[in-house]
Amino acid sequence: MRTRSGPVPSPAEQPREAWPLWEVFVRSRAGLSHQHVGSLHAVDADMAVENARDVYTRRGEGASLWVVPADAITASDPQDSSAFFGLDEEFRHPNHYVVPDEVHGI
């Protein structure tokens, strides 16, 4: 803890619970999906939306905002990512197939 001289600390000076972390998603304009832009701390969802506007959309970057409690997100396990995503199935991609030059429209 910081040591400072001065008056007796107010209740807020006591160690407090950290405000929850929110992940912020911005839809930059109608027709596009929301994209993750960053995170912030806020005491509740309303404050998170207001602060997200000030922190992440100061230059008209957004037409819509989502805030999601960070601890509500379930993520894939980074340790397993190669096994989890590592399917070697080239045939799912169109480039896997050779189309003869004289054939068009495929």
Binding site: L21, E23, S39, A70, A75
Partner: peptide, 8 residues
Amino acid sequence: MYTQGLDQ
């Protein structure tokens, strides 16, 4: 996702 997975 930013904060999780830090604990070994």
